[in-house]
Design a protein around this nucleic acid. Structure first.
Lengths: 330, 330
DNA sequence: TAAAGAAATGAATACGTAACCATTTTGGTG
DNA sequence: CACCAAAATGGTTACGTATTCATTTCTTTA
């Protein structure tokens, strides 16, 4: 391992000067720069970013705790976040959280010296929030909100649930069902509230509408769908709390020989890239703006890092994207 | 920032003992451990992993240079790699390489002290290979091979191209075309060779078969497809070098009102998770084994890190997965 | 040419940990 | 009780950089 001391010796200058050549060359004589650069070349010197981090107390690392990539929402956000962070000259430590590994991820993250944290795994009531505040480094949640109501970027979940539901209701469906996730997550809870509200506006009793709250892995969704098929009165429209769920339901429908939207209407929320594929063509609700939610969040996080803001609370408006998995009831 | 020195003072022991309590508690008297642990609690001490890295010359970081996630192949491999690495207690620095940003990624990576590098962005002739060997840290390529023929895990690309092509030929298609990527990548070149070989085996002249070599972003694939549609004699079967290309071609077909497989047969290579979705149901060629290629590669990389192996050269066998985007010609 | 100020360089130190070596304490044995 | 080995602990240093402060060298001006 060749260090800046080696370079210094080789160039006949002090280590300080080597450091200056790399960081503040305007303070060093051109001839000296040349000498040092040549020594760097000859010795194949590469600065040690760990040592630099130690002394500067900046690691240049952003920690991202994402959901798993089999959820296409996280494909979009991870792409946006990683690319943005790298373009800003930072590195990204990525974790994919599931029900199983989340705690060990938190342990690892809390011991890691990152410059900031961006995450989408927080529950509405979660002690993690307070641990992160104690860490005293900037953090932001995307697609999740904590009850303390700080440091988040989300879509208007209630409105999203409302618009999705209203869409199928206005197509004439009166036999709906809801497939969502655990209500400890602000996302699912908010969307469900919107669902309820829309039913109410159409004079339907939410209590009579089948509701499946499931974990969002493949197996549990399949279980929920199996239950759905057992219902006395099969719904004609399935409102899924996320595109990920919707797309998996679509898969299960086709797998069992159903046709969509003939046998089932399906609507999602998130407007993920995959939903636009013409094989899928999922009707969904998504951001009014063209931006990706992960992008908005990471941009805001950098604002906080740069002390341009101190606390982000942002709720983005949504609209409906009608595609081919919903249609007028005959 | 509370350090182990602060803990030491607070507990009335030396910093050495604090370090020992955390790393080799079996060398410390139980009563002392207790004292120190209490001090750690009270002061809310968290070890500084940067300082540890500096002294131990191990960062606990694996660098992953992946392709972009809009390519579903990289969704699968990134998932496998990140989860494996984290389960092993390491962190992952992720980069998504494209034509544009690859050089700046390389610059960043070469200055970063990672314990190992796993990448899928290497060209067959690429100076990067030699720079990485100079770095003297373990690295492995997945899905790419360098001409030096070291440090790689790949599928049998020639065989894959061969099987895919033979499949559509055996279905009665005699009007094929090939949509692939730049031949500087071993993956594309090998698969094309297999394509040629299969044509030859069926008595067709590869030189007369339309071949589109394109960059693998959406826009360039669309351009290639537009060209394809201009051909005097439209092929009945499209052999795509990757599932990513195949799935995008499928999208373009549907977008333009074509039906698959009626108007076009489409076959891919990689057997990505998405290809199994019943909306897509892409016929493809993939690993004989159940494992993900990224998983195999990262597992091998850890073997190298643990000195159990020194150099990986692995080519995995493949088989055909017939689904719904191909059918007998009528 | 001398003096003063600016520019360029260097020496020493801090960052927070693990590791090495030295020292003290403990426990067991004759 | 004395002695010795083993267990437990502590002092010091290294890791490789940036930074602070001091010193030297150069340039300008009277």
């Amino acid at each position: 391992m060749v260090s800046s001391k080696d370079v210094a010796k080789h160039a006949g200058v002090s280590q300080t000067t080597v450091s200056r050549v790399l960081n503040t060359p305007e303070l060093v004589k051109p001839k000296t720069i040349e000498k040092v650069m040549q020594a760097i070349e000859e010795l194949n010197y590469v600065p040690n970013d760990i040592a630099r981090s130690l002394v500067q107390k900046k690691t240049g690392i952003i920690t991202l705790i994402s959901g798993p990539l089999h959820n296409p929402f996280f494909v979009d956000t991870t792409t946006a976040i990683v690319n943005y962070v790298n373009a800003r000259g930072y590195k990204v430590n990525v974790y994919f959280g599931t029900e199983d590994n989340l705690n060990s991820i938190y342990n690892a993250v809390l011991e890691t010296k990152a410059d900031a944290i961006i995450l989408s795994s927080m529950l509405y009531q979660d002690d993690l929030f307070y641990k992160l505040e104690k860490l005293a480094i900037p953090f932001i949640m995307f697609n999740r909100k904590h009850k303390e109501n700080r440091h988040f970027v989300e879509i208007d979940n209630v409105q999203a649930g409302y618009l999705a539901t209203k869409h199928v209701l206005s197509l004439g469906h009166d036999s709906l069902c809801w497939i969502g996730g655990p209500h400890q997550m602000s996302t699912f809870y908010g969307r469900y509230l919107g669902f309820e509200q829309a039913l109410q506006d159409y004079g339907l009793d939410a209590k009579l509408v089948p509701t499946f709250l499931t974990n969002t892995n493949k197996m549990d969704i399949e279980r929920a769908f199996a239950e759905l098929l057992q219902l006395e009165k099969r719904p004609t429209a399935i409102c899924a709390a996320t595109d990920a769920i919707a797309i998996e339901i679509l898969n299960l429908c086709l797998e069992r020989g159903f046709q969509v939207p003939r046998d089932f209407n399906i609507i999602g929320i998130d407007n993920v890239e995959l939903s636009k594929h013409h094989s899928i063509a999922l009707t969904t609700v998504g951001l009014t703006s063209e931006e990706n939610l992960g992008f908005i969040a990471i941009e805001k996080l950098f604002e906080v890092m740069e002390k341009k803001s101190t606390c982000i609370r942002q709720t983005e408006s949504v609209k409906i994207f009608p595609r081919n998995t919903t249609c007028k009831i005959n």
